[in-house]
Design a protein around this nucleic acid. Structure first.
Length: 213
DNA sequence: AAGTGCTGCAACCGCAGTAAT
DNA sequence: CATTACTGCGGTTGCAGCACT
């Protein structure tokens, strides 16, 4: 059983937003606040679907957006966060005030990806690109292999499919939302033996507190 | 000036997660 | 519990603007 479309597509505009549409959307959200995107277009007198309105507001019209070029610091932070989180653009955006996930995603694909490649770094794995190697690696497995079980130490080889990246040693701990006078019970997601620094990217002691993301 | 290719970015699409019924 | 409705996310596309020939 399929889902019904999010809006009546036959009667909605598509493509670039006009100044008038922007003004209507801004005025409506200023008056009524965000939320209930599905009913917003009708209430605001817009011939757009709710998703489109939400996207336009979040990515372009929000007053707290920081437009303009990314700084070197932001570049570095994005690279570090991407190496930690992967393509979790919304999480990365959460660490960069005034930036949106869409903006960061675009920036990554157009600038940073190229920058890393020019430095000889694979933007997907954040590892140095070695001639004739990247095409051989297709899978990273966290499962213990037979070789792992028989020998804990294994010499490095890109062509060895059982090789496990030695420095990929992430620890993620998720704690419950903040509550006053509440003794948190930490849920740990272990990804191996962990020796995480005291403060990596602001995740203190390797604890990923999602309130700060 | 016209044609072509490239780049950057706004917007769309489809899916997953989750709340509501 | 099953179904429906809605929101949010990530991947992808389309197009305007620019550089180059």
């Amino acid at each position: 059983m399929g889902r019904s479309p999010c809006c009546e597509k036959a009667h909605t505009n598509k493509g670039a937003w006009t100044k008038e549409e922007d003004d209507r959307l801004i005025a409506h959200i200023k008056a009524h606040g965000e939320g209930c995107w599905r009913s917003l277009p009708k209430a605001a007198g817009l011939l757009r679907c709710g998703k489109s309105c939400r996207l336009r507001w979040i990515n372009y019209l929000r007053p707290d957006l920081k437009r303009g070029n990314f700084t070197e610091d932001e570049d570095d932070l994005i690279i570090k966060l991407h190496s930690l989180l992967g393509n979790k653009w919304s999480l990365i955006a959460g660490r960069l005030p005034g930036r949106t996930d869409n903006e960061i995603k675009n920036y990554w694909n157009t600038h940073i990806r190229r920058k890393l490649l020019s430095r000889g770094v694979d933007p997907n794995t954040h590892r140095p690109i070695v001639e004739g190697v990247s095409s051989n690696i297709t899978t990273i497995s966290f499962e213990k292999t037979q070789e792992d079980k028989s020998s804990s130490e294994e010499s490095f080889s890109y062509s060895n499919p059982h090789y496990r990246i030695p420095d990929l040693n992430l620890e993620l701990r998720i704690s419950p939302p903040f509550q006053p006078h509440f003794e948190p019970v930490k849920t740990e997601i272990g990804l191996g033996n962990n020796h995480v620094g005291d403060s990596f990217l602001g995740f203190k002691k390797g604890v990923l507190d999602y309130r700060t993301i």
